[in-house]
Amino acid sequence: MTRITVTVDGVKYTDDVEPRTLLVHYLRQNLGKTGTLVGCDTSNCGACTVHLDGHSVKSCNMLAVQADGHEVTTIEGLASDGQLHPMQLAFNDCHALQCGYCTPGMIMQACDLLKDNPDPSEQEIREGLEGNLCRCTGYHNIVRAVQEAAVTMREGGATTDSTAPAQAVTA
């Protein structure tokens, strides 16, 4: 067992883990962060994408011990001060999710994409999300959501009340 200290969604955890434990399994099984999901075993699907020190990583593709001393943000820690992230709101507004399984990873990757490129073209969005698979949406509305979030974030990151997002945003 190896002792690690990781800050996850703003909370500092110290745990003994088997050295072979993947970061995603540490998040899900040790910390109960089940919002982060596992969709494959070859690091292709991106369902497990989280931020490590602010940049997206596939948490099935690194060991928990590699996160020692680092800061991890999962989908569960993306909203701040009770406000949903503009990307979360845009996914709801643009119907960019159906079954929801790819959604946590897709949102985390999309946030990272906009951090690198706040004003991406459609093609840049598509290529920026290439490592995240979705079987439901055909990507059409995911691209639209990222475009919408990009506009919101460039205009100052205004968000609406996060207490009831699905109800708050209607046609």
């Binding site: 999901l37 989908i75 949903l84 709801n92 929801g100 399984y101 699905a166």
Partner: peptide, 20 residues
């Protein structure tokens, strides 16, 4: 074109899939 009720939990990681 109602936005989905289902989304609130799915975009925040409050999902409950069987493996969870």
């Amino acid at each position: 074109a109602r936005r989905r009720k289902e989304d609130a939990r799915l975009i925040t990681g409050r999902s409950r899939y069987t493996d969870s």
